[in-house]
C-alpha cells in the first residue's frame, strides 16, 4: 500500500540552512548535507531544499550542495527557489536532484510548466502554490506569500495539472507559522478536483495535525520545517503514532 509521506523542508541561504536547526547532536547543524543524512536516517520519506536567497551568485553554491546531497543521501529530494527556465531545471537534475519545485515563475509564465514536463517528465515537476483567503476566496500569492494575485487557488491547481505538473505543494499562508494545523478544507478540495498528489504545507504543530491532514485533508504528503528542526516532533514518534491511527506510513 502506498504510504503517506513525511517531508522536512530546509531553507537554504548561501549553501547553509537558515532559521536555525536545533535537534540531536549534530556537529554542524548549518550544513544541509549533514542534516539531510540525519533526516534520512531518522525516517524522513523525502526532503525539500528551498533556496531562499536564489540570487545568481548563490546558484553555484546551490548546485554544489545539490551534488553533495545526491552523493550522500539515499532518499529522494526536491529543490526549489528561483527556478524560472528549462536551463535552471536541467542543471539541478544534472546535479542529482530528483524533483524541482517552481512557484512564482509558473504563475508569471504558465507555459513554463508545459516546457518542463515535456522535457523532463511530469514526475519531477512540483508546482508550489502559496495561497491565502481574501474575503472568503483562496487567492494565489507570489514571492513567499507577500504579493497577492487575482488567481483562484482551485482554478490554478486544475490548470497546473493540465499543463503537466506531477505534484502540487500547497502552502496556506493563513496557517503557515501558526502551529494550529493544516488548511484541511482547502486541501481536501484540492484532492477532489485534481488527480495528482498533494503535499500539505503550513501549520504543523502537533502529531494530531499530521493525522488530521492525511484524513480530513486527504493529503498525500505533509511538509514541515520547525517542528522537525527543533525536535518538537521526532519523526519516528510521529510515524509510530500515525501507524497506531491506521494511517499507512513507512517505518
Amino acid at each position: 500500500m502506498l504510504t503517506k509521506r513525511i517531508i522536512p523542508c530546509l531553507d537554504i541561504k548561501n549553501g547553509r540552512t537558515v532559521k536555525g536547526v536545533n535537534f540531536v547532536d549534530l556537529r554542524d547543524a548549518g550544513d544541509p548535507v549533514v542534516l539531510a543524512k540525519q533526516y534520512a536516517e531518522l525516517g524522513a520519506d523525502e526532503l525539500v531544499f528551498l533556496d531562499i536567497a536564489a540570487t545568481l551568485e548563490n546558484r553555484k553554491t546551490m548546485h554544489k550542495m545539490v551534488l553533495q546531497v545526491a552523493e550522500q543521501v539515499n532518499i529522494p529530494f526536491t529543490v526549489g527557489g528561483g527556478i524560472s527556465s528549462v536551463e535552471d531545471v536541467d542543471a539541478l537534475l544534472h546535479c542529482g536532484a530528483d524533483k524541482v519545485s517552481i512557484n512564482s515563475s509558473a504563475v508569471k509564465r504558465p507555459d513554463l510548466i508545459n516546457e518542463l514536463s515535456d522535457k523532463f517528465g511530469s514526475q519531477c515537476i512540483v508546482v508550489a502554490i502559496d495561497a491565502k483567503q481574501v474575503e472568503g476566496e483562496w487567492l494565489v500569492h507570489l514571492a513567499g506569500g507577500t504579493i497577492p494575485t487575482k488567481i483562484n487557488l482551485f482554478d490554478w491547481a486544475i490548470e497546473v495539472e493540465q499543463r503537466g505538473a506531477g505534484e502540487i505543494l500547497f502552502t496556506s499562508m493563513d496557517h503557515d507559522g501558526t502551529k494550529a494545523g493544516f488548511a484541511n478544507q482547502a486541501l481536501a478540495k484540492l484532492s477532489d478536483i485534481v488527480n495528482i498528489p498533494i503535499i500539505a504545507s503550513g501549520g504543523a504543530g502537533t502529531i494530531q495535525h499530521f493525522s488530521d491532514t492525511f484524513i480530513e485533508g486527504k493529503a498525500d504528503a505533509a511538509l514541515a520545517a520547525s517542528v522537525f528542526h527543533f525536535g518538537e516532533i521526532p519523526i519516528a514518534e510521529l510515524k509510530k503514532e500515525l501507524k497506531q491511527q491506521e494511517i499507512p506510513v513507512r517505518i
Binding site: 502506498l2 514526475q123 498525500d220
Partner: peptide, 11 residues
C-alpha cells in the same frame, strides 16, 4: 484515474 497518477512515494 481511480487513483492519483503518478503513483508517487513509498509502497
Amino acid at each position: 484515474n481511480k487513483v492519483k497518477v503518478p503513483q508517487m512515494g513509498w509502497n
